[in-house]
Amino acid sequence: MTKEKQEELFHSWLTDHKPILYKIIRVYSQDLDDQNDLFQEITIQLWKSIPNFKAQCLETTWIYRVALNTALKWKKKARKNNPEQITEDLIKEPAENTHPHLDWLYHEISLLNKIDRSLTLLMLDGFGYKDMSEILGITTSNVGVKINRIKIHLQERSKLLTS
């Protein structure tokens, strides 16, 4: 694969699948510095993964695989306060308001263990058990049991929110 082709595909992935990356980044890292750090890590792995990408699987599935694998192994870095860092941020916080319960949902997902966070993201993004099993490498029945447990947990937590 030529470098131009790699760049072209990379740009189209960034443009078309930006929301996937942001969602993963938000549940695996808390503050903006960490989000920038993880975003950078994920995009580097995506860039490296392009030569291995075969059209046998969907782009979204591939991007999820690479991004989740990276987020799972990513570790928060200890950093010193560096004022110059601010100007180098790759992602910046939005100005617009979001749904009031969206922050709550993100918070609840971020409290789950790292594996359950992946499952929840895939579930909320509409992946079926078979696709999840393909991405995670575990049986569909195990996926089903875990998803049910997560659903029950989230619904229980939402009762606290409404009460």
């Binding site: 740009h11 960034l14 443009t15 930006k18 929301p19 942001y22 969602k23 941020d89 790759l90 992602i91 910046k92 916080e93 939005p94 617009e96 979001t98 749904h99 319960h101 969206l102 949902l105 909320l124 993004d125 509409g126 659903k151 989230l154 619904q155 939402s158 929110l161 409404t162």
Partner: peptide, 24 residues
């Protein structure tokens, strides 16, 4: 709130820009 409600809230995010990305 049930899972379908959460799904709806979640889908909002897929259709709007939550962050500004300096792609260049």
């Amino acid at each position: 709130m049930n899972i379908q409600d959460m799904q709806k809230i979640w889908d909002i995010e897929s259709n709007q820009t939550l962050y500004v990305l300096d792609e260049a």
